[in-house]
């Protein structure tokens, strides 16, 4: 019976194959050309196939060699952190830097159970003021202070 012995390798292999396949699919209209006159598709196609072959090898190997299992994913921090960045991207132009920073710090704090609101609220206000002073007033970065 086939049994996955090294799960991380199977994941990595499939990821590589997926990227290689995407490279071929989305690059299907780029002219390949010849070796002497390479088109825009030549190098990417070569790389995509190479990636698929390597990915297949890594994936196949995961059935043969033993290894540790994949370390469990902690969704809480993953979602909170990536979500904070998404929030920042939505707020920065509409609400401006000051409000965006306060909200983002609050959202990021959800990433861990250790966060205490008594600490997070002052921290958020402090960071908003500090970042405005450093980046907008001091370094004159083109960040909107308040939204439109």
């Amino acid at each position: 019976m086939l049994r996955v012995k090294k799960a991380p390798d199977l994941g990595a292999g499939l990821l590589f194959i997926a990227f290689g396949a995407a490279g071929l699919w989305f690059g299907r209209d780029y002219a390949v050309g010849t070796a002497a006159h390479m088109g825009p598709g030549y190098f990417p196609t070569m790389l995509s196939w190479l990636l698929i072959v390597l990915g297949a090898f890594v994936a196949a190997r995961s059935f043969v060699i033993e290894g540790p299992p994949i370390v469990a994913v902690r969704w809480r921090s993953l979602v909170a952190i990536l979500g904070s960045i998404a929030l920042f991207s939505l707020l920065i132009q509409r609400a401006g830097a000051a409000i965006a920073i306060v909200i983002v710090i609050g959202a990021a704090a959800l990433a861990t159970r250790e966060s205490r609101w008594k600490e997070v609220v002052p921290l958020a206000v402090f960071m908003a003021v500090a970042c405005v002073l450093v980046f907008i007033v001091g370094l004159k970065q083109p960040l909107p202070l308040w939204g439109e």
Binding site: S84, I85, S89, I105, A109, E114, S115, L123, L143
Partner: peptide, 17 residues
């Protein structure tokens, strides 16, 4: 727990600007 939100904000400002 106090450090990482600050690092995150700095990163985002850096990328955005």
């Amino acid at each position: 727990r106090l450090l990482f939100p600050c690092i995150l904000v700095f990163c985002m400002i850096g990328i955005y600007t």
